[in-house]
Design a protein around this nucleic acid. Structure first.
Length: 120
DNA sequence: ATGATGACAAGTT
DNA sequence: TAACTTGCCATCA
């Protein structure tokens, strides 16, 4: 399984929506795959959300997607190995004031940002 | 065209 | 209480 390197027709509905939601995550907050999936309409497939993040990884610039703000429901940085460096994800989070210890977001429940609640 | 896989989650057994 | 099974959408072989 490789990431769609070129912006082909891959960027469709689901990926597109996932990317947009992730971009809406405010600085200093984190969300989960399930929350995004739920916001997009029930269990659209939390797995696909993670897949969408991977596809959005190489994205940089004004349309950059803060994938580091997306963790699993336990607040674990499950995708840290997919970043440029194994510690990049944690670095970004800490840079926003989100302490991370042992790949786990501290005070995760408070930092949690639920799109279906915040956005409606 | 079919089968298998993936940064998960929730419900059941 | 912990472990197992199923669902979800899209992409790759």
């Amino acid at each position: 399984m490789q990431t769609p390197k070129e912006p082909t027709e891959a960027h469709r509905n689901f990926f597109r929506d996932v990317h947009e939601v992730v971009r809406l995550v405010p600085r200093g907050r984190v969300t989960t795959y399930g929350a995004i999936a739920h916001y997009l309409g029930a269990r659209h497939g939390a797995r696909m959300v993670g897949w969408a993040m991977m596809a959005a990884h190489p994205t940089v610039g004004p349309e950059a997607i803060p994938a580091y703000r997306v963790v699993n429901r336990l607040g674990l940085l499950t995708g840290r190995l997919h970043f440029a460096t194994p510690t990049a994800m944690q670095e970004f989070l800490e840079a926003e004031g989100i302490p991370v210890v042992d790949d786990q977001v501290q005070d995760f429940k408070t930092r949690f940002w639920d799109p279906s609640v915040e956005l409606g």
